[in-house]
Design a protein around this nucleic acid. Structure first.
Lengths: 354, 354
DNA sequence: TCCTCCAACGTCAACGTTGACGTAACCAGC
DNA sequence: GCTGGTTACGTCAACGTTGACGTTGGAGGA
């Protein structure tokens, strides 16, 4: 296509030469600054057009006083996870309104990778970062923050001070889910959660406990399974639950992939119309399953928008004390969470006969 | 947190001063170039560590001869679409192996937005771009390409020459789907497709036609609905199909959101166990629906990996003729595509009685 | 008329880094 | 001793752009 190899991008100097002005004047025209006559402006614009000149933001941000790269970093756990993807999109939309582009990376919940990506972003002098912190290891984040990099944590709050965050009502919503199940008569409500190092997992578990406590239910430790990362671990754990002498009549699955794993087991054992299920995080087509899956739906666009707004405020120089925004999740009833326990149903006798 | 406001990032000069060497020597140490004695290397490393020095890639790439920013641009239609998200993740993984970060953007299938994002990327001097071209309008892409920017198109091939692409077996797989349905006895097979300006839509439609032709089926134009963007449009179109005097007994939905819209209608009319369905694009939980949804599954990780490999080869200077890689899709049978038409089933009489 | 002021330019240096090139010291070999 | 080569540095300028600060010419006022 281009036999001469990489063509040199035209620079201000080229434009200046063609328009017969100084580079400074070109700079003024390109940046719409005053100090250039109408005729010169036209001449420079024409020259830029014919040369196909496009400013070099890299050089510009190096020289400018504000040092802005018009780029922010987004560091999530896994960009292919629908939750992360939706969040990224929300941040991106808000960023675009500010003429800012997004450098995106997946930390895979790996502290080493997170640190590496963090320095990669820093090296590119991003104006700020929106980060989903890796569970338990926020040292690298704190160091970055202490260097003065504007930062907002999403989904999980900082374990250190002085940094904004946007999270969901993890605890309250989890409690609500348990109350919802208890209200349908369930006494044996299982908890299946992701890694305990994750703040969200801890919060959701605490909410579960609060829910039990509020309704006077006793905690059966054999009904609690944590540190389930991914659908397979969740499926194994769920299967074990139903091998118990007294299996649960309801489940609260505290993360979307965990919900998926649990559902597979329910289906495999034909329990999906008998055992109640509420999952944290909505997922596509949850309404089209049978029964529809009752979930706590996070307002992902709101989370992303809020995070973006916070980071841009900080970038703009906002020095106010750190904000910890909390976005409410909603209980979406679709059927699975409204199933009643066996003793309320015709087939209850068989179950109690044990 | 930092009352002094934005702290100045330490530069090579700071490190040089502390280590009592020249900046050039610092540069050598930082870049692991020869020409620095063991003792000096240690001194510089120590100075860099105590100052928390991190090189400024922006300045470096400005000055370097190769001009690499170690950043590529990824321009997809909608980063929150699971397909796009999975693709981004695959590209990102490959990029990370090369120490390259990804600037990501959503074009929303809008030519204006695509052009805008394209210049945004160019302005940041990315080393290359992986682009899902907006339907029908590739002028901006071609111009960018002609400037010499390395570029790979994914999902949709270029309408202009000299540019690599990675696509799926859209046509062949679509034909396969139709043959699969026809093989189950279906004669009235509907086609529901996305915007006709999209190359993938056209290809899938052509595959549909080929499938009909191969089995001697006649094309019923009232069974073809195109330009369905999003689930709602698809649902409306699907509903109209079932209001026909002779509704289809099978549907081929040529895009994932279209499949979702069609499924909603099937469910609403309780037809999901009667009307066969094959969708292009797999989606999460397709196996957990009843019946499971038969789909043509694209090998998204392979698509992304291939695209990344191509772009990095070009960036590295590969001058060979353009490659048009085609990654095969697989027919995944889950039930919905294996349903037989009414006259093969007990309830056929009622249907034929019309 | 002269001075002031402002608009419309230009000049210069610097942002942080590295390529090109210079130089001093040292060693091997004759 | 001198040459030639190598190693370990340093100096200088430049990448593309913009902030700080000149310079020029003409309009306007006293």
């Amino acid at each position: 296509m281009d036999p001469r190899g990489a063509r040199r991008e035209p620079t201000m100097r080229d434009v200046a030469a063609l328009a017969q002005v100084s580079t400074k004047t070109v700079s003024r025209v390109i940046n719409d600054l005053p100090g250039a006559g109408a005729e010169v402006v036209e001449r420079v614009r024409a020259a830029a057009r014919t040369l196909g000149y496009r400013p070099n933001l890299t050089a510009s941000s190096l020289r400018r006083s504000d040092r802005r790269s018009a780029t922010i970093g987004v560091l999530f756990e896994d960009l292919s996870n629908p939750f992360d993807a939706a969040l990224l999109r929300a941040v991106e939309d808000r960023a675009r309104q500010n003429g800012v582009l997004v450098l995106a990376g997946s930390s895979e919940d790996d502290p080493g990778l997170q640190r590496e990506l963090l320095t990669s972003l820093a090296t590119r002098r991003v104006d700020g970062m929106v980060v989903m912190a890796v569970g338990g290891h926020q040292d690298a984040l704190q160091q970055e923050r202490e260097r003065g990099t504007p930062m907002v944590l999403v989904d999980r709050p900082p374990t250190f001070g002085g940094t904004d965050s946007v999270t969901t009502t993890n605890r309250d919503s989890s409690r609500e889910a348990v109350l919802h199940l208890a209200g349908r008569g369930h006494r044996r409500i299982a908890f299946l959660g992701d890694r305990q190092t994750l703040w969200t997992s801890q919060e959701r578990y605490t909410g579960y406990l609060e829910g039990l406590a509020h309704t006077g239910l006793t905690l059966h430790e054999e009904l609690v399974r944590t540190d389930l990362h991914g659908p397979d671990a969740a499926a194994t754990a769920a299967a074990a639950l139903f091998d118990l002498d007294e299996p649960p009549t309801a489940m609260f699955t505290a993360q979307n992939l965990v919900t998926v794993g649990a559902m597979r087991v329910l289906r495999a054992r034909d329990l999906h119309h008998r055992v109640a299920l509420i999952g944290f995080d909505d997922f596509p087509l949850a309404d089209m399953l049978e029964p529809g899956v009752t979930v706590l739906r996070q307002d992902v666009p709101a989370l992303g928008r809020r995070a973006a707004e916070l980071i841009f405020a900080r970038i703009a120089g906002d020095q106010s004390p750190p904000t910890h925004a909390v976005v409410p999740a909603t209980l979406v009833q679709r059927g699975s969470g409204e199933l009643t326990p066996p003793h309320d149903r015709p087939d209850a006798l068989a179950h109690r006969a044990r």
